[in-house]
Design a protein around this nucleic acid. Structure first.
Lengths: 201, 201
DNA sequence: GAAGGCATGTAAATCGTTACATGATTTA
DNA sequence: TAAATCATGTAACGATTTACATGCCTTC
């Protein structure tokens, strides 16, 4: 099992992808993994120091003019730890915290109109997120999206596709609630009977 | 804006849905919102005490035999706070932490075979999650799924549909990587040109 | 009589955000 | 010359998990 802290995982990867300073790493996170893996300065700088003490990264003072600046890179030990984590399939962390869904869960406690309003607000939020994603996708041409770095783009695609799917799911839920149709379809049998999800198309 | 802590939100809702003890609330969370909203005993019991001090819930000692037992219910103030939160559209919390995606993001740092292995492991995990979800959906007949409580079932449906979608997305990514096809399709124009997501069907 | 479920709690550790502080360099 | 960006860091607070501790009641 990998013993890297959550923040260490993204730091080591970003350093390997060419980021050099803590500031760089933070910027890269904010423009790429932010949707599914965040980290703040309050995590990054202390973690870089821990990683240095543990011998996974080396630090070099590389001031730019009079500005102090520390450039980090992976040690062989850090390379090994990164590769080990990337190919380890135990306990893959997956956490979701979705307040919109929690509200939907409690939909029976408010009026139909209030639920409809919530469903519409959610769709608006998804549309705003999508707009931001699309900007990033265009910007990214200069950043990660060259031949040797296809996967950052693929992960971004997952984000766009997921939010699109989710927006459509909410739209369908709204439509059904408005039309007075059953919210969830009845099961067909256990086997083979491909269960049509609410937003299946 | 709602000032309820994350744990308070789910506790108040669960009490309103009929849960009575801290233990009940925990069990309800574990069998229903766990996928998108968790809470541990270490959160729930202290939070119940805070809510009582704040006057949002009342606590009655209702021992069962010799076992001490505290039964909670909402005060009018608690009802108001719950309703306010359920209909408040500011700052809707959405957080995702997905290690599988982070690994995919760093796919350029490992071999094609290793990426394929990761994609397959992810699909297996999704299938296991789906199996658990389906059990819950069947069990839930006795719990939430009566006429007056349709929305818990709908939220569960979202979970099932989402994981199903995600599994399919990973399957398509695997297929493309195996076939040597481009991982992300090129854009067609800005307008109207319905961008086909990787796993669109 | 053993196992599992009901029930309540705390302590320690970890994880993470937010707000603050500082100052140089580059660009408009 | 003002604003944005580069760059590093800390302190306080808040959220959360894990592990531990306890003991009764119900079902097999």
């Amino acid at each position: 099992m990998s013993s890297l802290t959550p923040t260490a995982r993204v730091i080591l990867g970003m350093l390997k992808l060419g980021m050099r300073t803590g500031y760089d790493v933070k910027k890269a996170i904010d423009t790429s993994t932010r949707f599914f893996w965040t980290a703040s300065y309050g995590q990054i700088y202390p973690e870089l120091k821990r990683l240095r003490k543990a011998g996974l990264v080396r630090a070099e003072a590389k001031p730019r003019g009079r500005v102090k600046r520390t450039v980090y890179s992976l040690t062989p030990k850090g390379e090994r730890a990164l590769h080990e984590w990337l190919t380890d399939s135990e306990n893959v962390l997956f956490e979701l915290r979705d307040e919109g869904l929690l509200r939907l869960f409690f939909g029976d406690l408010i009026s139909r109109e209030e639920v409809l309003a919530n469903l519409r607000v959610q769709q608006q939020l998804f549309k705003m997120v999508l707009a931001r994603f699309r900007e990033i996708e265009v910007d990214a041409r200069g950043g990660f999206a060259d031949e040797s770095q296809r996967f950052p783009h693929l992960a971004l695609r997952y984000g766009i596709d997921f939010i699109t799917w989710s927006r459509d799911w909410y739209a369908e839920a709204e439509r059904r609630l408005e039309a007075g149709e059953p919210l969830v379809e009845l099961e067909d049998g256990e086997t083979g009977g491909r269960k049509r999800g609410l937003a299946a198309r």
